[in-house]
Design a binder for these strands. Structure first.
Length: 470
RNA sequence: GCUCCUAUCGUCUAGUUGGUCAGGACGCCACUCUCUCAAGGUGGAAACACCGGUUCGAAUCCGGUUGGGAGCGCCA
């Protein structure tokens, strides 16, 4: 049958920290590839390390992925709940002579590693326990000796066909017998990942380049177990501005999704930014919704070199999406970042609509929009237009006040503008706007009136006139 | 040290089979719009790491050099 296997990919983070932006991008590319091919995207929690894994981090992974909108089709599957599965294969490997018990102590291994390094060799396990027979090993185990399971590495050349990198060759004689489990109940990453990818019918392993060196080890295990080899795609790394692997912080941001969320970034901005880090659509379009990305995505356009995390560009995407977003949706997101009295106010959405084009982050709203809710205190001198004086400002304000009091319904803006055009826009509009906002920089006077209402506006103008006459 | 990966503006990148004023975006600068700010519009500065080859012609093909990164765990 020539039927192609259904595409199945996975994102497999370990819950040892908050979801990293690098992991998020890997998740995105997995998601895009899966959806593009009508395949499945699976979430697998790699929590075999009991000491370092924490439930709260798993929760963060789930929450962050949801926030980004990267919906998975299966999972979360936890490796910690699959020890029986791994045990079965561990036994099989042991029986087949592909693995053996190793009784070497950590100290011995450490000393070995160091001497190898100083002698200019790649650190590699000596194979010391390789010849210990299974009977003998079990005897020692029975007498309470500590041991780990090592994989017997067959020395050979392995050619990996990587979707983004092309052919990559490895010499496994450099590897040394690596540890695949601390015990029957404690499998380690390279082993557990292979078992799961097989059992879950993963067709394409899409992951960060930092895993490239693990690939030959995993292929060796696959071969020993008679598994099919999956397709591999190793994504370039996201780099910090100093070109090192992006680990902890970028500016005052943590390199985690949670940190981005807290700083007032929109999920679509983060996604769009991550999408263009190491991938390009082949044309000059830059703004992509998740749906559009799915249609456009292609591994041929994935970059090979690492990409620096450019905060400025992320910021640009963010302000772009703040301006573009559906106002109701934006309001919902912005509510988390403003005082309750703002969020509950009937002015909230109108104010947001006006201030959104000035916002770089959702967190900007509170400061920008404060003037709507409470007129800031300001000195009378601020009402003076640059080519004029305070007294003239007062005169114009009196006149505008008159117009405002007369214009009950519409027509206010037209009439004020008519007056302003006659008297000089700056002379009229500047004092008006400062009277309404109390600030040198603000939205236009009519926008402010639209938000705070005519009555409040009249009050503020009267206050300005009072300030001047004092 | 060893193995692997990688190399176009400051940054993200376009550049299918060699011929482009080396294109776009972010950022930066100028101008413009404008009562201010922001947004918008227009324009500008800004790159093929280096050295050799192959060729009439190389960012593109080949070789080397240098730089950068990752990995080398009883972490993932």
């Amino acid at each position: 049958m020539a039927d192609k296997k259904k595409v199945r990919v996975r994102i497999a983070p370990s819950p040892t920290g908050l979801l990293h932006v690098g992991t998020a991008r890997t998740a995105l590319f997995n998601y895009l590839f899966a959806k593009k091919n009508n395949g499945d995207f699976i979430l697998r929690i790699e929590d075999t390390d009991k000491e370092r894994s924490e439930k709260k981090y798993e929760e963060d992974i789930v929450e962050s992925l949801k926030w980004l909108g990267l919906a998975w089709d299966e999972g979360p599957v936890r490796q910690s709940e699959r020890t029986e599965v791994y045990k079965k294969y561990l036994e099989k490997l042991l029986e087949g002579g592909h693995a053996y018990w190793c009784f070497c102590t950590k100290d011995d291994l450490e000393a070995q590693r160091e001497s190898q390094m100083t002698n200019g060799h790649a650190p590699k396990y000596s194979g010391h326990c390789r010849e210990v027979s299974l009977d003998e090993a079990e005897k020692r185990l029975g007498s309470g000796k500590d041991a780990v399971l090592r994989f017997k590495v067959q020395e050979k050349e392995i050619l990996v066909k990587d979707v983004v990198r092309g052919k990559v060759q490895f010499d496994t004689s450099l590897l040394g017998d690596f540890v695949i489990a601390k015990s029957f109940d404690e499998p380690l990453y390279n082993f557990a990942a292979v078992i799961d990818d097989h059992e879950m019918n993963i067709t394409h392993v899409i992951r960060g380049e930092d895993h490239l060196a693990n690939t030959p080890k995993q292929i060796l295990i696959q071969e020993a177990l008679g598994f099919d080899r999956s397709e591999y795609a190793h994504l370039p790394l996201i780099l910090a501005p100093d070109k090192s692997k992006l680990s902890k912080r970028v500016g005052d941001l943590d390199a985690t999704i949670q940190s981005l969320k807290k700083h007032g970034y929109m999920p679509e901005a983060v996604l769009n930014f991550l999408l263009l880090l190491g991938w390009n659509p082949g044309d000059e379009k830059e703004a992509f919704s998740l749906e559009e990305s799915v249609k456009k995505f292609d591994f041929k356009k994935v970059q090979k070199g690492g990409a620096i995390f450019n905060e400025e560009k992320l910021n640009w995407f963010n302000s772009h999406y703040i301006r573009e977003a559906d106002i109701g949706r934006l309001a919902n997101m912005a509510k988390e970042f403003v005082p309750k009295e703002f969020a509950d106010s009937s002015m909230f959405e109108k104010a947001l609509e006006i201030e959104r084009e000035r916002m770089k982050w959702l967190t900007d709203f509170e400061e920008l929009a404060g003037l709507f809710f409470k007129l800031p205190d300001y000195p009378a001198s601020k009402l003076k237009w640059k080519t004029s004086d305070v007294k003239t400002a007062g005169k114009h304000l009196e006149k505008v006040l008159g117009i405002m009091e007369e214009s009950l319904g519409n027509g206010l803006e037209g009439r004020v503008m008519e007056y302003a055009d006659a008297e000089g826009r700056g002379d009229v509009l500047w004092p008006l706007r400062v009277a309404l906002s109390g600030q040198e920089k603000s939205p236009g006077p009519f926008e402010i009136i639209e938000v705070i209402g005519r009555e409040e506006a009249i009050g503020r103008v009267k206050e300005a006139i009072k300030k001047i006459s004092k």
